[in-house]
Design a protein around this nucleic acid. Structure first.
Lengths: 223, 223
DNA sequence: GTCTATATACGGATAGAC
DNA sequence: GTCTATCCGTATATAGAC
């Protein structure tokens, strides 16, 4: 509920900042895009402001001119990344017009598309979030959006209908996220095990769009 | 097959190095244990040799005396961590005396125990492995152990018996790993969503020992 | 082997010219 | 706004006494 407002504000701000700069190849934007790439790939500690500057094709001093410090720039990227990540989620979770199974299919579809484009997002987020747990996530009201979601209500309803023993809903959430997200986090290991190249891996992830809903459905009936 | 030899060698070496030092509170060992903790928690880039020295209760210079450099020390920890991680796996995967379902149960049981004790292992490994893909994993013959395993042969047999459409075995491997490992990687997010404390979270992970085999079994019949 | 003191390198940030 | 040159803190690594 509240989160949608936050997202709306986020989107508005993005729209504003995009219209504010006449040309999208402005230095500020170039730095932000470069920072996103470098931070996502290396994480905060291993990222070098010099790398970001080079990637952006500008000078190091300019980075500080626009963003004051490495940390400020990072916080910005972190916030935007959390936004892209949860944005895919918020609407789907609270859509009153779709069934549980439809939601699962949409989530698999949308997230796999997102992660095929930016596969580093989950490992980046989860890595930077360790130690720092609630602080940032609270800003996004993640808890409320998920815990009070239509999706979770529908799951509880399904469990009741199937007369399954009570179970903490977090198991379901964890399983859904696991099946969608984990292959991207574990891709170096999985590619090695399956001796796959990038293209084969991507093809496999696309297959999962159809497979995950089937698996989840079967798990919902398991006893 | 081959990997077991490697692990055996690894175990032997560990045994040797343990007997070599008369007292286990030797500086060298204290540093190694401290390094494991700090590297696991912060990763290579964010870890400070000073932190490790303090954690070990010794002086910074001593760290370089024993291990030459931060990187050398890290490589050692990395190797030992990969070993603890895959050690749990190798034997189970190629046990001729157990069924597929039994193997799944044992894997869930063993890994969850391991990860409850050292929850940082997966995020540490996967984070340090990005970019560095095959290099280290090849040393461990991970590919051969998994790809030619009894477990995978049994999975293929099951798929055939259940007359299910052909599917890349990596889906199965990924799903199994996902269900076991992901909750630990995603724990900051999951704890926030479920407003759980550490104890509640651990209890949930213990529940999964029994749940994962059931889920996997149902997925194996899904079409 | 273990310490204190120090050298050296690296990376983030700023001064100041244009 | 954008650059070059430089400062300065921090972190790794070593020298040398004990």
């Amino acid at each position: 509920m509240k989160l949608i407002t936050i997202f709306a504000i986020g989107i508005t701000q993005m729209a504003i900042s995009k219209t504010k700069s006449k040309h999208d190849d402005s230095a500020e934007l170039k730095i932000k895009m470069a920072a996103r790439i470098v931070f996502h790939k290396k994480g905060f500690a291993a990222a070098r402001t010099r790398d970001i500057a080079r990637e952006a094709g500008i000078n190091l001093a300019l980075l500080n001119y626009y963003f004051r410090s490495k940390e400020k720039l990072f916080d910005l990227i972190m916030l935007e990344t959390l936004q892209t990540f949860f944005q895919s989620m918020a609407m789907v979770f609270n859509d009153e017009t779709t069934t549980l199974e439809e939601k699962v299919a949409v989530i698999a579809d949308k997230y796999i598309d997102l992660l095929l484009e930016e596969p580093e997002i989950p490992i980046f987020l989860l890595n930077e979030l360790r130690g720092n747990p609630t602080a940032l996530l609270k800003k996004f009201n993640v808890k409320k959006v998920v815990a009070n979601s239509v999706l979770l209500r529908q799951w509880q309803q399904t469990m009741k209908e199937n007369k399954l023993p009570p179970m903490h809903p977090l198991h379901f959430m964890a399983n859904l996220m696991a099946l969608v997200i984990f292959p991207f986090i574990g891709s170096p290991m999985l590619k090695t095990i399956g001796s796959m190249n990038e293209d084969q891996f991507k093809k496999m992830m696309l297959e999962r769009k159809a497979l995950i809903p089937v698996w989840i459905r079967s798990m919902l009936k398991a006893k």
